Simulated scan of single mutants.
Amino acid sequence: MSPSGPPHTGGPQPSPTDPADLAEVARRIDELEKKVDQLPTKKELADALRAFADSLEQQG
């Protein structure tokens, strides 16, 4: 009977707490936070939609 799944190579597995991995994760989090900060707020979106609706009414 053969075991299911990939064969075990016996090599060392990368640790999830590797400092290089943590630095990469921290860098990605920083990038995402910057992107989130650039997103419009609900109020800004609502104001933009109202202005768009008003411009449509004026055209029609």
Rank of each mutant, 00 (worst) to 15 (best):
36 V>G: 01
49 L>F: 09
40 P>E: 01
30 D>S: 05
17 T>I: 08
22 L>R: 13
52 F>W: 07
30 D>P: 00
4 S>F: 09
58 Q>F: 06
36 V>E: 07
6 P>Y: 00
38 Q>M: 11
46 A>T: 15
52 F>I: 08
8 H>C: 10
25 V>K: 14
22 L>K: 09
38 Q>K: 06
16 P>M: 01
56 L>F: 13
33 E>P: 09
11 G>E: 07
14 P>R: 06
10 G>W: 15
7 P>L: 09
18 D>L: 02
31 E>K: 02
5 G>E: 09
31 E>I: 06
17 T>Y: 14
46 A>Y: 14
2 S>I: 00
37 D>Q: 11
13 Q>F: 10
11 G>F: 05
49 L>A: 07
57 E>R: 15
47 D>K: 12
2 S>T: 13
33 E>D: 08
13 Q>A: 02
34 K>W: 00
28 R>C: 03
25 V>N: 12
32 L>H: 01
4 S>L: 09
2 S>V: 05
34 K>P: 00
59 Q>S: 07
55 S>E: 00
31 E>V: 04
26 A>V: 07
59 Q>C: 10
31 E>Q: 04
10 G>C: 07
23 A>V: 04
60 G>D: 01
7 P>S: 09
49 L>M: 08
44 E>L: 02
56 L>A: 13
29 I>F: 00
15 S>T: 11
7 P>W: 11
1 M>T: 15
58 Q>H: 04
55 S>R: 04
60 G>Y: 03
11 G>N: 11
24 E>Y: 05
27 R>T: 11
47 D>C: 00
